[in-house]
Design a protein around this nucleic acid. Structure first.
Lengths: 334, 334
DNA sequence: GCGGCGCGTGTAACCGTTTCCACGAACTCT
DNA sequence: AGAGTTCGTGGAAACGGTTACACGCGCCGC
């Protein structure tokens, strides 16, 4: 067994546990000689401090909890990477939890964090902020990432889907598109809804309300294919497609080509998310790129900020703006 | 503030903390009446147990630590997903840590787990098992994933890179390739080295030693591009490429096409890893697919097994075999 | 030469749980 | 009816650290 405690170290160094603790944490006021003895004893016994005990007594764990809806694909790995980068910089550990879809699980996951973490990063496209307010152990600072809407009780950091969608449409219009289809994400998904709203607003403003049509999708490859066939059958012809994510855009573009509509000349196509694969399809896919690592990084920084200064806990909302990346799929030669 | 402890609950229910604890953990022998009172008190106060304290007292945290070399891309997100799936099934939490490359950091990461986790999953392509044996707090069960080699002190689960590489080469040869390039991973990385060794062995065996050339890469997109230009300039012409991972394969393939070498007719290409993006590039990329989620899942199961039965701690080695997935990039029409 | 101060150290309380053990009351069994 | 068992409960000791406080000591300044 392990079980070499600070008490063992203290005994071997012939000091009290208090002094041992002080020496190891290079606290003020321990004689160099004492410190030396303690450190040697610790090394000799191969002492590793028990961090659970430490955080109990210090009242702080140097760990932050991360609750994500799913752990699938690059979307989440990028976010985690960003969080980790910032956490590592500050010497924090990450306790990861996956609410497997259901709200019940989310509640469980959040409660399971109590007493293990100093703060929480929660991402919940399908759970509203009110729910969190009800379930967060009081006194646990939390940042809500990309929630449906802030209810003003928790700081939030989100993707500016609305602005992104508008920019995507504006780009298509600038390329000369007159009749634009939007392949939507699933209804009820916060990101999808915001992108749809942005699409509507931009089309109405730039081309007039009847220049845009919406085709229901659900972010999946399959729904991108379905959408393509619907687009092909539209009259008058569609000359621009804005898909709510890259996955659908890629599948849609491939299927449109099969049906004789080639990007970018017959139809200009743009996606959303900026997944790496977008640049390897032919033609390379234009997209509204999200810097998800940055999202994670900023979320963690914000969390640290509110844990450190009690006062700055107002529920501000920060927005991460997608960046327009123009590639071949929407670049008109004319 | 938070700070509603079990003591508060006990006071409100007019029982001792001992009884409160028993009631909440539905332990044996508490009167239904008492239990009821305690539970009501807990709900009224919105009590959430402090898991840090619990694990200190129970000597068990229901958490397992995961130490990974990097958190980049789908490779790791898949592993984490597998680990999470198994952990979730068993009601375990995940403490994630990233050794940012250096051995020093690895040591730190591992020590930082002491007293917070019941077991460790360590993946360390650049660190050998001996290192782990030295740094693991004693008594902490651990599984080594994909290490350079087992020193027999810790159970291991690894990818069968050697067999995978041989199969990839054999496939290229079967497609008629006579002169094959291997874009390698970084030297010193265990996976990369094993794949290189497999390449050499297979080429020598099937075509003769001088039919293969090696081009240094480092698993990155950029190095895939560099490799492509080198391949283009090779004389006699290369007609088969085995890249040590999919990322390089994809980038390499795209660049080769720019340089006039098209897959699969001019050059057959196969990657390694089986990342999802491989099937969406054009032409779709053949690959030696790894079921990384399964790797993670099995690693966790194995860890649980050894934590539960002290005796079964012999250092067995399990291998995960890559699966050949043939797609357009290496399928010769002839 | 004596009071006060600063410094290093030790004692003990504490963090929030769980759990061992003792204790009384209410049973059952002769 | 008295002795032996349950059975529910409470007190208190863990778990492994940190830290407030007290204490003894040598030093300084008057």
């Amino acid at each position: 067994m392990s079980a070499v405690t600070i008490r063992d170290v203290a005994r071997r160094a012939a000091v009290s546990v208090a002094s041992a603790s002080r020496a190891l944490n290079n606290h003020a006021s321990v004689t160099p000689a004492t410190r030396q003895r303690v450190i040697e004893a610790a090394r000799a016994l191969d002492y590793v401090p028990h961090l659970g005990a430490r955080s109990l007594s210090r009242g702080r764990s140097n760990t932050i909890g991360v609750v994500l809806p799913d752990l699938f694909g690059e979307f989440f790995s990028e976010i985690i990477r960003g969080i980790d980068r910032a956490a590592h910089r500050r010497g924090l550990q990450l306790l990861l939890s996956n609410m497997h879809g259901s709200a019940e699980e989310t509640e469980l996951a959040i409660r399971a964090m109590r007493g293990r973490v100093d703060g929480l990063l929660v991402m919940s496209p399908q759970v509203d902020a009110e729910f969190l307010g009800r379930n967060l152990p009081k006194g646990l600072p939390a940042i809500v990432m990309n929630a449906a809407a802030s209810d003003g009780t928790h700081p939030t950091i989100a993707i500016d889907n609305l602005a992104g969608a508008r920019e995507a449409v504006a780009h298509l219009v600038a390329q000369g598109c007159k009749r634009i289809a939007h392949v939507t994400g699933p209804q009820g998904n916060a990101d999808a809804d915001a992108r749809r709203a942005g699409f509507r607003a931009a089309v109405t403003e730039l081309l007039g309300a009847d220049a845009g049509i919406e085709i229901e999708g659900d972010f999946s490859e399959a729904s991108g294919i379905d959408a393509a066939w619907q687009i092909i059958s539209q009259r008058p012809h569609i000359d621009g497609v804005f898909a709510a994510n890259d996955m659908m855009a890629v599948a849609c573009m491939a299927t449109l080509a099969e049906g004789g509509m080639r990007a970018p000349d017959d139809v200009a196509i743009i996606g959303f998310d900026g997944v790496p694969i977008a640049q390897y399809v032919t033609p390379a896919l234009s997209t509204m790129a999200l810097n998800l690592a940055e999202l994670g990084e900023r979320a963690l920084e914000k969390l640290v900020a509110i844990t450190e200064s009690e006062d700055a806990a107002e529920a501000t909302t920060e927005m991460l703006k997608p960046e327009l990346v123009i590639r071949a799929s929407s670049r008109r030669h004319a």
